[in-house]
Write a protein that binds this DNA or RNA. Structure first.
Length: 104
DNA sequence: CTGGTGACCGCTT
DNA sequence: AAAGCGGCCACCA
């Protein structure tokens, strides 16, 4: 039996390059639609950024949240743009870059 | 066990 | 529109 965090990390790691997922989406795929907060907490304690692309996880509006925790608001945006994700008005074009949850 | 906190979500003021 | 509050779940003191 894996810990809650492991399941969350597992889902986040499956997000393909050039796509983004929402907290609710990750929570749902992890098997618990109500883990939205836990997902955020799990990423907050993110043990390894190299393995867990937290920059690909955004809130319901496609915004990088109060991204101060990333060490710089622009940080996440630059990373995503490098992967081909287009930002509009400080947020990603969700209908275009949202991860289906099926593609690996 | 209790209380406090958090990178969320949604409704109500 | 912005802020507040509650609910959800997990972790820490």
């Amino acid at each position: 039996m894996k810990n809650s965090y492991e399941m969350i990390y597992d889902v986040v790691q499956q997000i393909p390059r050039g796509k983004v997922a929402t907290y609710g989406q990750v929570a749902f795929l992890a098997g618990n639609p109500r883990w939205s907060r836990v997902v955020g907490y799990a990423l907050h304690v993110n043990p390894d950024q190299s393995t867990i692309p937290c920059h690909r996880v955004v809130n319901r509006f496609g915004e990088p949240s109060p991204a101060f925790v990333f060490g710089g608001a622009n940080r996440q945006i630059e990373l995503l743009q490098s992967e081909g994700v287009e930002f509009v008005d400080g947020k990603v074009d969700l209908p275009r870059y949202i991860w289906d949850g099926k593609t690996k």
